[in-house]
Nucleic acid binder design. Structure first.
Length: 223
DNA sequence: GTCCCGTTGC
DNA sequence: GCAACCGGAC
């Protein structure tokens, strides 16, 4: 069972990440949409803009002029696409739960996840971010980094369907929302720092877990 | 030029 | 299955 060992190594190396980095649940949801295929650095700037404009609430966000909203989040990549997505999510919260996130998170988890997947702009990864970090459901968030790390370590096929990758992780770990949330955060960190498109294995906390680790003679030695 | 904590539409 | 969305950082 390499994954629980990997979790311990990452936690030891990096410490708790305390995700999701947000002041409120709505900010968390907005961040989860904005971060799609975008560097987090730019998402932070966009959220600051939305905060200043008073648009980190479902009602105001849903009612804002789309062009205006798009300009505010311009820094976060495909802004017109994401403006539309944010408003769909905000409208969903208003329509289905009267704008109350407490009401939304009190809904049955399986029902809520299915409903979220029906909202334009929310795919499986974004839905699971909201389910774990928002609703406190024991869901592992499968992102490109998780696929990359797992694929390179030979744990599974990186191109497997979302549900299959998620099942691989969840079946090997406790059904514990904080733990699964922490693992996702740690995997993002190791992904940003080491498991990049071109791997930077030197100094990686998971270096010694690579297939064939210790059998190579071309690795820089640290002692 | 490549890549970024994806999702949608063709 | 794959391009479009898009600006910023390296």
């Amino acid at each position: 069972m390499p994954i629980d060992q990997a979790y311990r190594r990452l936690l030891e190396a990096y410490g708790p990440q305390h995700w999701w980095p947000a002041q409120t649940p709505m900010e968390m949801i907005v961040g989860a949409v904005l971060v799609q295929h975008t560097a987090w650095r730019n998402v932070e700037r966009a959220i600051t803009q939305l905060q200043a404009a008073g648009l980190l609430e479902p009602g105001p966000l849903a009612r804002a002029p789309q062009e205006e909203l798009a300009q505010l989040i311009r820094v976060a990549g495909p802004h017109r696409v994401k403006a539309r997505r944010l408003q769909c999510v905000a409208q969903f919260i208003v329509d289905r739960y009267g704008g109350s996130l407490d009401a939304m998170f009190a809904d049955d988890p399986q029902t809520l996840r299915a409903s979220l997947l029906g909202v334009h702009g929310i795919g499986p990864e974004t839905a699971d971010c909201i389910m774990n970090y928002g609703a406190g459901a024991p869901r592992f968030v499968v992102d490109a980094y998780a696929r990359r790390v797992a694929g390179r370590h030979g744990w599974l096929d990186a191109k497997a369907p979302y549900a299959a990758v998620q099942q691989w992780f969840e079946s090997r770990l406790p059904a514990d929302a904080p733990l699964l949330g922490e693992l996702h955060a740690l995997i993002v960190k190791v992904g940003v720092e080491h498991c990049r498109p071109t791997p930077r294995c030197a100094g990686c906390p998971l270096e010694c877990m690579l297939p064939g680790a210790g059998s190579h003679d071309d690795e820089p030695q640290s002692h």
